[in-house]
Amino acid sequence: MSRPTTVTPEPATRLIVALDFAEADAALAFARQLDPAQCALKVGFELFVVAGPALLQRLHDLGFRVFLDLKFHDIPNTVAAACRAAARTGVWLINVHASGGLEMMRAAHEAVRETNDTTSLLAVTVLTSSDAGTLREIGVSREPADQVGLLGELAIQKAGLEGLVCSAQEAAMLRRRLGERPLLVTPGIRLEDSGGDDQKRVMTPERALEAGASAIVVGRPITRAPDPAAAMEAFVTRLNMPNDAVE
């Protein structure tokens, strides 16, 4: 199947809300409070292990595009098989760890391309919970931005993937090196008065877009807010404001 030449999301999907829930009923109850015209949804490890593919179908039935965030990382054949199975569910985005290497990413991409041409494959560069100290602990001497640039070029220019998961702090650098085609999905997004939780490389929503992010991922600042609907509206408003409107 042919792949789209660009996968930059529509304005309605610039916001991806992470469903940080431990059970399907809670996740679905929360999703029903949201508007699929304003956001997409992200399903990660815990929720998918609990609820499985049936949850993805129920979210699709509610009208949401879904980012299945399982960060596959294994030998090429295993990752290709997992990506093929994920693509069959009809999700919008799936991802692999770029640190799995070129052969693994190429195998994964080919599996997705052969299975579903509406699913796009992203590569995770360096987790937003990691900093230079974290990288040194695992034997990587490069600074996070340098490692992100290296993995980004490997994933986009050599493996042909549609996009990257990266910190918004590296988005501008990636745009300079990779151009406008890749989809850049950026977690670690916070408003100025929010805590960082376990995220270390964070940025506000409008600055992330200004830096070149295609879509932002927001979890706990919305799902654990005293008023989640109001919290989501704050992010939607900020995403639609001119870049110089918030100082």
Rank of each mutant, 00 (worst) to 15 (best):
residue 184 L to V: 12
residue 153 E to T: 13
residue 186 T to M: 11
residue 152 G to T: 01
residue 213 A to W: 08
residue 192 E to M: 02
residue 114 E to P: 00
residue 142 R to G: 07
residue 170 E to W: 00
residue 168 A to T: 10
residue 132 A to W: 04
residue 212 G to P: 09
residue 162 E to V: 10
residue 194 S to D: 15
residue 114 E to I: 01
residue 131 D to E: 11
residue 195 G to W: 08
residue 129 S to I: 02
residue 166 C to V: 14
residue 171 A to G: 08
residue 172 A to T: 12
residue 179 G to R: 01
residue 166 C to I: 12
residue 113 R to P: 02
residue 189 I to N: 07
residue 114 E to G: 14
residue 190 R to V: 09
residue 127 L to P: 11
residue 157 Q to C: 09
residue 136 R to S: 09
residue 177 R to S: 06
residue 122 L to C: 06
residue 131 D to H: 11
residue 202 V to D: 00
residue 167 S to P: 14
residue 213 A to F: 10
residue 181 R to P: 08
residue 207 R to H: 11
residue 203 M to R: 06
residue 142 R to L: 15
residue 157 Q to S: 12
residue 126 V to M: 06
residue 132 A to N: 13
residue 157 Q to E: 13
residue 196 G to Y: 00
residue 145 A to N: 06
residue 200 K to Q: 13
residue 205 P to H: 00
residue 211 A to L: 08
residue 194 S to E: 15
residue 204 T to D: 12
residue 111 A to P: 03
residue 107 A to W: 02
residue 141 S to R: 14
residue 198 D to P: 04
residue 179 G to F: 11
residue 197 D to P: 03
residue 143 E to T: 15
residue 160 G to K: 01
residue 163 G to P: 12
residue 178 L to P: 06
residue 186 T to K: 13
residue 189 I to R: 05
residue 155 A to N: 03
residue 178 L to V: 04
residue 123 A to P: 13
residue 181 R to I: 05
residue 110 E to S: 05
residue 115 T to P: 03
residue 195 G to H: 07
residue 204 T to V: 09
residue 123 A to E: 04
residue 124 V to Q: 07
residue 145 A to Y: 09
residue 201 R to T: 06
residue 134 T to I: 02
residue 163 G to Y: 03
residue 123 A to Q: 07
residue 201 R to C: 06
residue 137 E to H: 08
residue 178 L to F: 10
residue 183 L to R: 07
residue 169 Q to M: 15
residue 170 E to G: 02
residue 114 E to S: 09
residue 195 G to T: 07
residue 125 T to V: 04
residue 202 V to C: 13
residue 178 L to N: 01
residue 171 A to H: 12
residue 161 L to D: 03
residue 163 G to D: 09
residue 175 R to L: 04
residue 109 H to T: 00
residue 179 G to L: 01
residue 124 V to K: 11
residue 168 A to C: 12
residue 138 I to H: 11
residue 167 S to V: 07
residue 142 R to D: 15
residue 109 H to Q: 10
residue 156 I to K: 03
residue 148 V to Q: 09
residue 207 R to W: 05
residue 145 A to W: 07
residue 159 A to G: 00
residue 120 S to W: 00
residue 119 T to D: 00
residue 171 A to Q: 14
residue 198 D to L: 01
residue 201 R to I: 08
residue 213 A to E: 06
residue 193 D to T: 05
residue 113 R to D: 12
residue 125 T to I: 02
residue 167 S to I: 09
residue 198 D to N: 13
residue 187 P to G: 12
residue 140 V to Y: 05
residue 203 M to Q: 12
residue 161 L to W: 02
residue 167 S to A: 13
residue 172 A to V: 01
residue 140 V to F: 01
residue 172 A to M: 08
residue 111 A to I: 10
residue 107 A to G: 03
residue 123 A to F: 09
residue 115 T to S: 02
residue 185 V to N: 08
residue 121 L to Q: 06
residue 170 E to N: 14
residue 184 L to H: 11
residue 165 V to P: 02
residue 186 T to I: 06
residue 156 I to T: 11
residue 112 V to F: 05
residue 142 R to T: 10
residue 176 R to V: 10
